[in-house]
């Protein structure tokens, strides 16, 4: 297993966002996570990429332990609840950094560095973080630009590109560091429908190359087509999980059915 997450819980103030998520991802697998807004999909991704800290649970990526849970002694007074007795403990910063390097994340709104050219966006982390030399980094960047069909835009700045182009650069930037697993947080939600296609094409290509990917998406048809496994989340829990045929064809859970129903209605209306 490339990724093993066990019983992840996370709350913001008093809001329980993740209520015990367990998830395993095999090498080369493509997992799509679907579900209504506020179901905790993005938070899950943010926890797996260390942008948020979990309250309890265990996460292991690429055989390296990111975080585990320990029992703590109860304080002397007051009502003691079960969740007060456990606390997450993160690994040392070296291990966490190594895990960061194993992981790539593509954001909904790209988050390219606006002051860097396209080429530098893809090269900079290679040079500064992975300590590759400049020539090597540029070769890798050019190769990726070609793959993204943007090899003529290396000198452009992000503000000069369309959303679809920016997102392809963001994917190239993540790929340049050779992640073992790539996360996508609603990669097409900020794009016009006609630009969505070019991103989906890139992801499809990566799936063919057996890139391990976890994709949070609202594109149901795409999830059905590209994913090996589909996960439906609601209320901070995994409600349904299985092959696309299982989840889209014969969902067991009522909430899943309602959600998929609403989506197909939305599509026919739109």
């Amino acid at each position: 297993m490339l990724l093993k997450a066990d019983n992840i819980k996370k709350k913001f103030d008093k809001d329980n966002v993740l209520n015990g998520i367990s998830l395993e991802v095999r090498e080369g697998e493509v997992v799509a996570i679907i579900g209504p807004s506020g179901s905790g999909k993005s938070t899950l991704l943010r926890c797996l990429t260390q942008l948020e800290r979990i309250d309890s649970g265990r996460i292991e990526i690429g055989g390296k332990l990111m975080v585990d849970t320990v029992k703590v002694k109860p304080k002397a007074s007051g009502v003691i609840q079960e969740e007060d007795l456990i606390r997450s403990v993160y690994s040392d910063s070296k291990t966490l950094h190594d895990i960061t390097l194993d992981v790539g994340l593509v954001f909904q709104n790209f988050n390219l560095f606006p002051h860097y050219s396209v080429l530098k966006n893809i090269m900079d982390a290679q040079i500064k973080v992975l300590k590759r030399n400049k020539v090597e980094a540029e070769c890798i960047a050019m190769e990726l630009l070609e793959k993204m069909n943007l090899d003529d835009r290396g000198d452009a700045y992000p503000c000069e590109l369309s959303g679809g182009q920016q997102q392809r650069i963001a994917i190239a930037r993540a790929l340049a560091l050779n992640p073992r697993i790539l996360f996508f947080d609603e990669p097409t939600s900020a794009l016009d429908p006609e630009l969505t296609g070019e991103i989906l094409k890139v992801i499809r290509g990566l799936a063919k190359e057996k890139m391990t990917m976890v994709i949070v998406t609202h594109e149901m048809t795409f999830a059905k087509e590209v994913a090996d496994r589909v996960i439906f989340m609601d209320g901070g829990l995994i409600i349904e999980e299985g092959t696309p045929e299982e989840v889209f064809g014969k969902a067991v859970n009522q909430r899943t059915k309602e959600f998929l129903q609403r989506y197909s209605e939305g599509y026919s209306e739109g």
Binding site: T49, Q50, L105, N109, N111, V129
Partner: peptide, 23 residues
């Protein structure tokens, strides 16, 4: 500076000093 810039830098593995100086 949008929060997303810090987050992008973090997932790319920049340390805090690099994030400030470069991004």
């Amino acid at each position: 500076i949008p929060k997303g810039q810090y987050e992008a830098a973090k997932v790319l593995g920049y340390n805090k000093f690099q994030t400030f100086m470069r991004i």
